[in-house]
């Protein structure tokens, strides 16, 4: 037992639990691959990880790093938060915002998906405006508390 534990790295229970989980996962994956029209499912499963870990995350980390350079110190979060929230909305709703689902949408609902881009831009504008207002208010409070006043407004 100790030998197994040392060779494996931890308690054998760990192995048993993982084998059980892998068995269920493998069964489930087989059901997807076996189903009709399973063409690009594996691509999608692998692509999901690649897209997040090697594209999305480096992309927003890079943008964040750039933003920290442009707006250092207290300004950072006043830029980061509205930009991040707006990007989140775009990430989730881009098929509607960028009109990728127009045809299916019309066939199903009988209406055309209108105004999504405009409303996203409007909300983005509001987020940045709100951030700017909070920045100015908190900035002037700081200034009144302590001279010299904070810079960068």
């Amino acid at each position: 037992m100790t030998l197994l534990r040392r060779g494996y790295g931890t308690t054998p229970l760990h192995l048993v639990a993982h084998v059980a989980a892998f068995a269920l996962a493998a069964y489930a994956l087989l059901q997807i691959v076996d189903a009709r029209r399973a063409d690009n499912i594996v691509l999608w499963l692998v692509g999901a990880v690649i897209l997040h870990d090697f594209v999305l995350l480096p992309l927003y980390s890079g943008l964040d790093r750039a933003a920290r350079r442009v707006a250092a110190g207290r300004t950072t979060n006043f830029l980061r938060v509205p930009a991040g929230l707006s990007a989140l909305l775009l990430l989730v709703y881009f098929p509607l915002i960028l009109g990728r689902s127009e045809r299916t949408y019309e066939t199903l609902s009988g209406l055309s998906p209108s105004g999504y881009l405009g409303r996203w831009l409007l909300v983005t504008g509001l987020l940045f405006a709100g951030s700017a207002i909070v920045f100015v208010i908190t900035g002037s409070r700081r200034a009144s508390r302590s001279a010299p006043p904070a810079q960068g407004a």
Binding site: A21, L24, A28, Q31, I32, A35, P95, S101
Partner: peptide
């Protein structure tokens, strides 16, 4: 939910079984 179908597989089948994979992997 946004009526965008960039994939060829059946959504219901894939979403359902991927959920089974997810639950198994989450449990361990």
């Amino acid at each position: 939910i946004l009526y965008w179908y960039p994939f060829k597989f059946n959504f219901v089948v894939a979403h359902y079984w991927a959920a089974a994979v997810f639950v198994a992997a989450l449990a361990v």
